[in-house]
């Protein structure tokens, strides 16, 4: 893997008093936290807790009703350039797997020779080389999600947002995707991901942000969180009880 992240400038991510109100419903209330370069931050919580919205807000896809989001980097263009996101349902273009990667490389202004080289690397890394000429949208769910990861990887982000990317995958496909996440984290990419899967959080998290009904109840390193969560809702979640 050639692109180890050197001198990352994007982190820390500071979120202050973030609220989101849509159609008179309070979806996120007064969320504040700071994320450092600790490699994998997992936003954990049940469906409807507001995890996806929080990720989209941090990535700049939607605007908050109140509150601020700031990065270590101050140049807005750089901030946007240095992050990527992979969605729960992989959004792939109606072209071949290779052309999906090529598309973002072109968008980011790489020349033809660089594109060719990077595309090969990304396909190899995600184990998709043999599928490169297939139409992306006929690949299996796991392959599609790996392609989405390859595409995000192609633009060399410092921060990668992953929104429930294994929610629709079976265990073996999930395992392959998790390997990639670990690989990316090991190469220095800051991973900010959501999941409702407790075991996945245990496998991947360096730190946990526990979200419940639009509020951030706990923000702690993984070990103390899983061993001794403080809030009742978080405790119940860690015990595997169903939360409403």
């Amino acid at each position: 893997m050639d692109h180890r992240i050197v001198n990352p400038t994007l982190m820390p991510l500071t979120v202050n008093g973030l609220s989101l109100i849509r159609n008179q419903r309070q979806l996120l209330s007064d969320i504040s936290f700071t994320l450092n370069n600790e490699q994998v931050s997992v936003v954990l919580g049940a469906n409807g807790a507001g995890k996806t919205l929080l990720l989209k807000l941090c990535h700049g896809l939607i605007q908050p009703s109140k509150g601020e989001i700031s990065w270590g980097e101050k140049d807005p263009k750089q901030i946007a350039e240095k992050q990527a996101m992979v969605f729960q349902r992989p959004v792939l273009l109606k072209r071949s797997a290779a052309d999906n990667i090529n598309y973002v490389l072109k968008l980011k202004g790489f020349d033809k020779r660089q594109r060719q080289q990077k595309m090969q690397q990304c396909l190899e890394l995600t184990g998709l080389t043999h599928l490169k000429n297939r139409p992306a949208r006929v690949l299996s769910g796991g392959e599609q999600q790996r392609l989405a990861l390859a595409r995000a990887w192609a633009i060399q982000p410092e921060v990668l947002f992953l929104d429930e990317i294994t929610a629709n995958l079976d265990p073996s496909a999930t395992a392959l995707v998790e390997q990639l996440i670990e690989l990316f984290a090991a190469s220095g990419v800051k991973i900010i991901m959501t999941t409702h899967d407790l075991n996945q959080a245990k496998r991947l998290a360096d730190e946990v942000l526990f979200l419940h009904q639009g509020r951030l109840l706990e923000h702690n390193s993984a070990k103390p969180f899983f061993e001794a969560a403080e809030q009742p809702a978080a405790k119940a979640f860690v015990r595997g009880e169903l939360l409403w």
Binding site: K56, H59, G60, L61, A80, E81, A84, M85, F87, V91, L93, V104, L107, I155
Partner: peptide
Amino acid sequence: AEYSELLKSLGA
């Protein structure tokens, strides 16, 4: 509806 978030994410 399908592509707007991806395209926004990519800064298109």
